[in-house]
Write a protein that binds this DNA or RNA. Structure first.
Length: 424
RNA sequence: GGAAAGUUGGCAGAGUGGUCUAAUGCGGCAGUCUUGAAAACUGUUGACUGUAACAGGUCCGGGGGUUCGAAUCCCUCACUUUCCGCCA
């Protein structure tokens, strides 16, 4: 959520940058917000003055009662009933304006960073870097969803029986590979200075609001009706919400946390070959890295995070590329996002395995995650996160790219974690 | 699932319906003392809104009510803790 003060003081700038995100009706929405806010201020002033008067009368009555001057107290009492009515009316007016402003404010996406390329779709994303050679597969190379059943390592049908589509069962070396990747990612993140946490994987409504899944995207999350809890779509939600309603000290920065969790996404309305096999699941595993930073450091940190994730892909010997997302392809809450994609050799396409974003104050404004600066003023911190990494598409690429006539070769770095060199 | 008790500032913890502008302690910050530190002593110590700056307003779990006036009384919801039951 954008800061109202910022919108008020920088209207033109806000409109210019919202245009990069292709936010429709920006002019109307922003103007309405500013106008409503002016109304709010006026109403608040009125309400405050009324309350001030009522407060002072109440105090006078108190003193009169104490000194036994009952008659005078009664005359003062008579004066208050009208005040009470106006007070009530003004409060209601104020509240309704505030609700109106809030409802508009949550529809406004974050402002993109000045370096974000303009564009509408994924076609317009900017390739920042490409690394690693795409493998030449042998003649009978197969897509991963055939390899998984050939070697009996991931069973999609069995998952359908137990739960439904998009909930695969990992078996044998497939399960072991999952565990190996999780441990590998966590070990690397810890070595990079991230503090490992194991958060709950169901969260309450407040947490959903804090990171911006609510009120907009509740359709994307599984919901436990009886207890009013949501299954997390990413560890970002609980890990970032650890800093909800917190005022940090400047010396607390940088705050680096990482965590492994299963992630749950309803993915309502997704069909077709994009969702084949491991490409899109309802439940998957992911290691997430999250940082809370000083505003002046956040872009430096964003690049560190991006390069860290790239390093993981290099270690896994996967060809990958880094994209800087254009305004139209970026998420609602992000100011700047890098996507990392791995080459999936049998599908002949790039698969997104990580998204690293700086949210600046967009999340922290809602979270009320602040810090005290050197002047003792409280300021909003910046929040950032990235996948490091999401497993399914990594597994898809590993299986497809490393397949040979004899079996699937495990990259060297994972062998100690797996305890085997080949899936055959 | 049953019963009871609770929810107050960064933390602990007081608080007979009227200077609550929330006691006190701890912690934090600043100062005195010290070569430096500790201890001791002194002072200071929240958030939001608002203003040019003051002033003013809001906040004692959330919401509602009673009252001229609520941290305090009433209703309601949420959460926490303890005990019992069930159970990994």
């Amino acid at each position: 959520m954008l800061q109202l003060n910022y919108i008020r003081d920088n209207k033109d700038e806000v409109l210019k940058r919202l245009a990069v995100k292709n936010f429709k009706d920006a002019e109307t929405v922003i103007s309405t917000i500013i106008e409503l806010d002016n109304n709010r201020k006026a109403a608040q002033k009125q309400a405050d003055d009324t309350k001030a008067e009522a407060n002072s009368i109440a105090k006078q009555i108190g003193e009169l009662m104490k000194s036994g001057n009952k008659a005078e107290a009664e005359t003062l009492k008579a004066k208050t009933s009208e005040l009470k009515n106006t007070e009530k009316a003004l409060d209601e007016k104020l509240k309704s304006i505030e609700v109106e402003v809030f409802n508009l404010l949550v529809t406004v996406p974050n402002l993109p960073h000045s370096s974000v390329p303009t564009g509408k779709t994924a076609e317009d994303n900017e390739v920042v870097r490409e690394s690693g050679a795409k493998p030449n597969l042998y003649a009978n190379a197969k897509p991963h969803w055939e390899l998984t059943s050939q070697y009996d390592i991931i069973d999609f049908e069995l998952g359908v029986k137990l739960t439904g589509a998009g909930f695969p069962v990992y078996k044998g070396k497939g399960a072991r590979l999952q565990r190996a990747l999780i441990n590998f990612f966590l070990d690397r993140a810890t070595a990079e200075g991230y503090n490992e946490v194991q958060p709950p994987i169901v969260v309450n409504e407040d947490s959903g609001y804090g990171t911006g899944q609510l009120p907009d995207k509740e359709g994307q999350m599984y919901f436990v009706n009886e207890d009013n809890l949501y299954l997390i779509p990413t560890a970002e939600v609980p890990i970032t919400n650890m800093y909800r309603d917190v005022i940090l000290k400047e010396s607390d920065f940088p705050i680096k946390n990482c965590g492994y969790t299963p992630c749950f996404r309803r993915e309502a309305g997704s069909y077709g070959k994009d969702v084949r096999g491991l490409n899109r699941l309802h439940q998957f595993d992911k290691v997430e890295i999250v940082q809370i930073s000083h505003p002046q450091k956040s872009y430096e940190i964003l690049e560190d995070m991006r390069d860290y994730v790239a390093g993981l892909l290099q270690e896994l010997e996967l060809p990958f590329r880094i994209l800087k997302l254009c305004g139209g392809d970026m998420s609602f809450a992000s100011a700047l996002t890098y996507d990392l994609e791995v080459w999936s050799a049998a599908q002949q396409r790039w698969l997104e395995v990580s998204s690293v974003s700086n949210f600046e104050t967009f999340q922290t404004n809602r979270l009320k995650c602040r810090y005290k600066d050197t002047n003792g003023k409280t300021q909003l911190a910046h929040s950032l996160n990235g996948s490091a990494l999401a497993l399914p598409r990594i597994v898809a690429a590993l299986l497809e790219n490393n397949q040979t006539a004899e079996g699937i070769k495990i990259p060297n770095v994972l062998v100690p974690y797996c305890g085997f060199e080949m899936i055959s």
